[in-house]
């Protein structure tokens, strides 16, 4: 089943690097997933987080406030 990945962040450098990490992991491992960037703060706040960027996989917040490593993202997606 295709995974739904959301990256929450208002566009700061950290959010950008999280997006890059996630995109990289998804493409190199051929993971069936859609990546959506959520930049609207009102939308972001619906997830009840206080630090950005945050990584949401299938509506579960997995990482918040920091940029994960590729291995970490891979582990979360498997």
């Amino acid at each position: 089943m295709s995974k739904v990945i959301k990256i929450l962040g208002t566009g700061c450098p950290k959010c950008q690097s999280m997006t890059n990490v996630v995109k990289d992991v998804v493409s190199t491992n051929n993971i069936d997933a859609s990546i959506e960037k959520v930049e609207d703060i009102v939308e972001i706040m619906k997830f009840n987080i206080m630090t950005t960027p945050a990584l949401v996989i299938d509506d579960v917040i997995t990482i918040k406030g920091r940029v994960p490593t590729k291995d970490e993202v891979l582990a979360l997606l498997n």
Partner: peptide, 15 residues
């Protein structure tokens, strides 16, 4: 502190 987190932080506190 990361200035981009100031808004979510603010909302979180208010909430």
């Amino acid at each position: 502190f990361c200035s981009c987190s100031s808004v979510p932080l603010f909302i979180g506190f208010v909430r």
